[in-house]
Design a protein around this nucleic acid. Structure first.
Lengths: 107, 107
DNA sequence: ATAGCCACTTCGAAAAAGCTAGCAACTAGG
DNA sequence: CCTAGTTGCTAGCTTTTTCGAAGTGGCTAT
């Protein structure tokens, strides 16, 4: 691998982990891989994330273009979150991480 | 996917991100994918990680069995870190994350 | 009316990360 | 001998991130 490739690869990995390396984000994306969900649905699925951090993570993911936030005007008003194409492209990778953990990280 | 599979997958993903979801860990593993390295070499390569956190991350990775810490008695005494088989198994996945970021996360 | 749900927001507390001086073990140069 | 540098951490204090829980407004049900 040429130095240029190494440098570019590391910069991309840095950008990826600027997102994935924050607490809860990987699990959030994994959960959304099962399908669109509301805020409280996500909160219950992840279980141990605080409201303020869940809200902030969803905002960050929406701003990064990985998640689409849709307001349903109701009544009652509701918000759903779903993966964009960019977000969905990560799901097979998350599956591989999961497989890796099954094999290499004891329960 | 049966519920049991979903549950198991999510538990594994949780275990994976208990490690990958901490700051610097993904980049550290990516750097070690280029080959064994000493502490200061890793510090310089990552660039923005503090000494105390780097030390703690390496300890965590060694305890989880992803990294092997080897003391070279010298003189001068030196320590090298290298990926174990378990750690190395993650490198192709990190490569895919990097490819994904190249395509979906603008620089 | 109360009580519950939802999707957040706010604010102070706790945990994680950062900063940096310091240590011991070394090397190099004056 | 000294100083100055390297390495691989550690300790203690500071800053940032996450947490926990109360709160808001918009709704539904009793």
């Amino acid at each position: 691998m040429a130095d240029e490739d190494c440098v570019r690869g590391d910069a991309a990995l840095t950008r990826a982990f600027a997102i994935l390396g924050t607490r809860w984000t990987g699990l959030l994306l994994g959960q959304l891989g099962h399908g669109a969900a509301g805020y409280r649905e996500l909160s219950r699925a992840i279980g141990k994330v605080s409201d303020s951090v869940l809200s902030e993570r969803l905002t960050t993911l929406a701003e990064a273009g990985l998640v689409k936030r849709t307001v349903l005007e109701g009544p009652p008003v509701a918000v759903t979150y779903e993966l964009t194409d960019a977000g969905r492209a990560l799901i097979p990778v998350l599956g591989q991480i999961s497989d890796w953990a099954e094999e290499h990280l004891p329960a």
